[in-house]
Design a protein around this nucleic acid. Structure first.
Lengths: 210, 210
DNA sequence: GACATTTGTCACCATGCGGTGACTTCTACG
DNA sequence: CGTAGAAGTCACCGCATGGTGACAAATGTC
């Protein structure tokens, strides 16, 4: 009975394998998106046999569930409202700052952008996870604002937040693959300064008029 | 030499096969999007053998190219500006009407919505075709406005159009699979009336202030 | 009517996928 | 030690895909 010479000392370490699988999942999503994700590709990227994925996570969905719990796909209310002072800012100023922070927060999360793009096409575990946390945090944020800034403006505030949030999401996702849209550049930070200035003007116009 | 009894009279008609393939492509995109599109599924939906697709169109891409030429994925400037009268409308009123028509035009084109969703994820022949016609028409429209409405406002007009267009695209695509976003319903025509009213307010605020 | 061309059908190939069983090797515990 | 069970490896299955070759039947042309 000969021992297999070619077999390297296989650094037997289940925790490390689990960690490598989760890390590989993030890398694949960041590089290729959620479209072509599969067990074979994941195992290949993690440098382990796919049977280990089934043993440790049960399923590709299990990997995604655990991955979702280990990452923060969305901003928290505290993260966003840090330094927002109702005593020294108007409602419009607060909204402008929050919108800037929202854009910053999602633009620097490539995996979140990939999931945002994917959720327009198909449903999945990661999409559901992102949707849940986003909807909850957004409503929390709106409640935070309502509790601190007194007069409900004439403007339909939820609709305003929806529109601007939708625009920011769309442009952030789109900026990954397209540099110019409607003749306006949308990729670099300088491009975004122009976009955010336009948002500032929109907010100011909407909340001061009437 | 026996004749094949099971062989039905195979209504030999290449033009009809071509037409059925193109129609089936539209049906598949409308139902399942662009993600899982393939030659096998297309041939199955068209009720013909896939070898005919290769013979008549050379390629799946060939089908897409011909499909793109046979449909109008985007509004035309004439379609959008019909009845817009610079003598009797302010710039803000014109923009509000155009925005409404834009939303209406893309919301009633399910294939356009599917391509819009897909272009955030991957590039393809149909995505490129849509991008080309959209970018051209949008710039034409902006030029049309600039030529007819005199004073350039203080507002960054291209950025305004970009933001509102992005928001409408995003919400139109999203409304297919999600009924409520940020607590605001986004699916029915009544829901959209609320959204469009908010857009009206944004445009009015942005163009009348200062 | 004879023949070449086109139309349609069926068979096949290589490849990749998700998923599972069987086996060897290592480690922890008695 | 010795042994049970976990960790890791390899081979395989069924299935679907994109793509092609071979052949039968219908059609147009001389």
């Amino acid at each position: 009975m000969v021992t297999n010479v070619a077999r390297a000392t296989t650094a037997r370490n289940p925790a490390a394998v689990r960690a490598r699988v989760l890390a590989a999942l993030g890398a694949i999503i960041e590089r290729d998106g959620l479209a072509g994700l599969g067990v074979n590709a994941l195992a290949r990227a993690a440098g382990c046999d796919k049977v280990l994925i089934y043993r440790y996570f049960g399923d590709l969905d299990g990997v995604c569930r655990e991955f979702a719990e280990s990452r923060d796909f969305w901003w928290t209310v505290e993260e966003l409202v840090d330094g927002v002072d109702p005593a020294r800012m108007t409602r419009a100023q607060a909204l402008q700052l929050l919108m800037r922070r929202h854009a910053q927060a999602i633009r620097r999360r490539p995996i979140t952008l990939a999931i945002l793009a994917h959720e327009l096409t198909q449903r999945s575990t990661l999409v559901a996870a992102l949707e849940a946390v986003r909807e909850r945090r957004t409503l929390d944020l709106l409640a935070w604002i309502d509790a601190r800034f007194e007069p409900p403006a004439a403007m339909d505030l939820p609709a305003l937040a929806l529109l601007l949030g939708a625009a920011v999401n769309y442009l952030a996702v789109r900026g990954r693959g397209l540099a110019v849209m409607n003749g306006v550049p949308i990729r670099s930070d300088a491009d975004w300064e122009r976009i955010l200035s336009a948002i500032d003007a929109l907010i100011a116009g909407a909340l001061t008029q009437q």
